[in-house]
């Protein structure tokens, strides 16, 4: 009898299939969560091209690009972690997951620095918004959406970091082996979601209109 098999499943493959399909279904719902916000962003951008381009220019392209690099690197290392556990190398798998989580933390710190800068520049709607000029109002809509989208994304990163730390601890204690690593794979799937959402956020918010 497999120790990880819940009593309502027939065999481990069935349990794994259910867990993986459940995670994919969850990812589908997440795509729609962010999809609404990105749709709102596209609609508003189409209505106010000048204000939104202006907004993009006020974002920190350098920090945004470093964050992108950090997040993509973390996704890659997470994939390495999965490979290591498949090869029964628990120690290096654990290390890879810890590094992934650390890069997640780095992402959050960098993003926090962006928020602090924006506070000083007076770019935070209703809290401290000091912009004037013809496009100031539509730029405010840009920053509203910017905070909602990046805020929700950062929340997902934060949840991901906690999740990864739990998984790292379980890996260290030897819960996973080449025969059973479903939670690790699921955490990896979640982390990929966090990555992929950012791949849409970064060009849409930071790059579009930046050089115009």
């Amino acid at each position: 009898m497999n120790a990880h098999l819940a009593e309502h499943f027939d065999d481990p493959p069935q349990q794994k299939e259910a867990a993986m399909l459940g995670m994919w279904a969850f990812i589908a719902t997440e795509v729609l969560f962010f999809g609404v916000l990105l749709a709102a962003y596209i609609v508003c951008r189409w209505r106010f091209p000048a204000g939104f381009a202006d907004g993009s220019r006020h974002t920190d392209l350098l920090l945004g690009s470093i964050e992108t690099a950090v997040l993509l690197a973390s996704g890659c290392i997470m994939a390495v972690g999965l490979r290591e556990i498949q090869l029964a190398k628990q120690r290096s798998a654990c290390l890879a997951i810890v590094i992934t989580a650390a890069l997640g933390v780095a992402f959050l710190v960098l993003h926090g620095m962006e928020y602090v800068d924006e506070y000083h520049e007076g770019l935070i709607p209703t809290v401290r918004y000091l912009q004037n000029g013809t496009d100031a109002d539509s730029m405010e809509v840009f920053f509203c959406l910017y905070y909602v989208i990046t805020g929700l994304h950062s929340l997902h990163v934060l949840i991901g970091v906690v999740l990864l730390l739990v998984i790292a601890e379980r890996t260290r204690r030897g819960h996973f082996s080449p025969h059973y690593y479903t939670p690790l794979e699921i955490a990896g799937l979640y982390w990929s979601l966090v990555d992929i959402v950012w791949i849409f956020v970064y060009p849409g918010i930071y790059l579009a209109g930046h050089s115009a």
Partner: peptide, 21 residues
């Protein structure tokens, strides 16, 4: 349902913080 949830979330943010979407 996620679309509804996010939309209602935006209503809440709009009432609380004046987000102007």
């Amino acid at each position: 349902t996620p679309v509804l949830a996010m939309t209602l979330c935006l209503i809440g943010l709009e009432r609380l913080f004046g987000v102007g979407i």
